Simulated assay, not measured.
Amino acid sequence: MPMLIGLPKETKDHENRVGMTPSNVKGLTRRGHRVLVQSGAGEGSFLSDDEYRLAGATIVPRAEDAWAAQLVVKVKEPTPAEYGYLHRDMMLFTYLHLASDRPLVEALLSSGVTAVAYETVQTADGKLPLLAPMSEVAGRMATQIGATYLQKTQGGRGVLMGGVPGVAAANVAILGAGIVGTNAARVAAGCGAQVTVLDVSHDRLKYLDDIYRGQLQTRFSDEYNIEEAVYDADLVIGAVLIPGGRTPWLVTTDMLPKMRRGSVIVDVAVDQGGCIETSRPTTHSNPTYEIDGVVHYCVANMPSAVPRTSTFALSIQTAIYVVQLADEGVNAVRKNPALKFGMNTHRGAVTYPAIAQEFDMQYVDPLQALGNA
């Protein structure tokens, strides 16, 4: 049966991405589905209402019109102002990052919405295909942003990433060698910085060592090595991921006074709680703060600063799953194991184990929760 799909405009601070491109919409309307696009939803990514209209969408003036759908596709989690739009017969497909947001968990549960999180959709080989594109963007941006805030005019140490002949380059410590860390390392090494990447996975460290052949150092991530790397760093990039769960603190409050004055922390993991104890979510409007002389950049939606790149990169990966949810409804979760991992809540039940564990809530297996729905 045809599905009514909503594409609302994002409301998070400076969130300029949009959940679907006109190309995605055209693919859905050709399959007989109806897509409601809130007017201006794509403007931040330079996608006009006319482009969506030509793709077969119906342009609606208000957010509530787009939310009054069976399937709502977004980029970021609902903000408190949007909680009232959630309802029992809705499927919500977006980034959620629930491990650090109990009020949102409670809103999803009380509304009964079926919430499928991009970041926990997981394939049989353990990959996170919908987290990967934004991790690539955020990782590359982290080094770029760090280089900016190392400037004295931005509160930093006044260190140039690549140095100049006769003067040392910046020292960059990257905590985590996953997609974010690997992309951050790529840009930092390309800038000529002295780069150290820390991780607990020998395979990931070996991969980076083989690829870069001496252009960066790899170290096992333990307390001693973390402290040594962080204390020597001009820039620390937090790139740790616990799929669906809260990130552990690798840099504690009592470590900050021992760090270089004017050094910079970019905590990409902040949307999962952060891997720096002193991290707290910031916005593009007010991106940084200073503690013990260390500049903290903790914007929870970093890729929205490059929305056109990010929107297209994300929508390429989400398209196949949106089609499955539109064609099959919640039955797509039964048929596709990747979407089963992605389902975080359904009709008042927590269906992702890390979320239940974080908030001491009862976990219900996704297929059990679906029952005969």
Rank of each mutant, 00 (worst) to 15 (best):
E77K: 11
L109F: 04
T94M: 15
V73Q: 12
P80C: 10
R102S: 03
A69C: 12
P80I: 08
D89T: 10
K74E: 13
A68W: 03
E82G: 05
E106C: 01
S111K: 02
A68G: 02
R88P: 05
A115V: 01
E119K: 10
P78C: 07
K74C: 13
E82L: 06
M90K: 06
M90H: 05
Y118F: 15
M90D: 11
V75F: 06
R88Q: 14
S110W: 05
A81G: 14
M91N: 05
L109E: 05
A115W: 02
D101N: 15
S110E: 13
A115S: 08
S111Q: 01
Y83P: 04
H87C: 07
S110Q: 12
G84L: 14
A99G: 01
V105P: 10
E77Y: 02
R102I: 07
V105F: 00
L109V: 04
P78I: 08
R102Q: 06
E119S: 07
L86W: 09
G112P: 03
L92M: 08
S111T: 09
L98P: 05
R88V: 07
G84Y: 08
A117Q: 05
T94C: 15
Y85V: 04
V113Q: 06
R88L: 13
T94W: 00
Y83K: 10
K74F: 11
S111F: 00
T114K: 09
E82A: 10
A81F: 13
S110L: 08
L96M: 03
T114N: 02
M90W: 04
S100A: 15
E77L: 02
V72D: 07
D89V: 04
H97F: 02
K74H: 11
F93G: 14
S111A: 07
A99C: 11
A107T: 14
Y95Q: 04
E106Q: 14
H87V: 05
P103R: 09
E106K: 12
L109W: 02
V105L: 01
D101Q: 00
E82W: 06
T94E: 15
Y118P: 06
M91K: 14
L71Y: 01
P78T: 10
A69E: 02
A117N: 06
Q70D: 14
F93C: 14
V75M: 15
A81C: 14
V72K: 10
A68E: 08
A68Y: 07
A68N: 15
K76H: 13
L96V: 01
K76V: 13
A107P: 09
A107I: 11
A69Y: 04
L109G: 07
K74V: 11
A69L: 10
G84C: 13
T114E: 05
L86Y: 02
Y95D: 05
S110I: 01
Y83N: 08
A115I: 04
T79H: 08
P78E: 02
P103H: 05
V116M: 01
G84N: 12
Y95H: 02
E77A: 05
P78V: 11
A69N: 04
Y118W: 04
V105M: 03
Y95W: 09
E77G: 06
L104D: 07
V72F: 12
H97V: 06
L96I: 09
F93V: 13
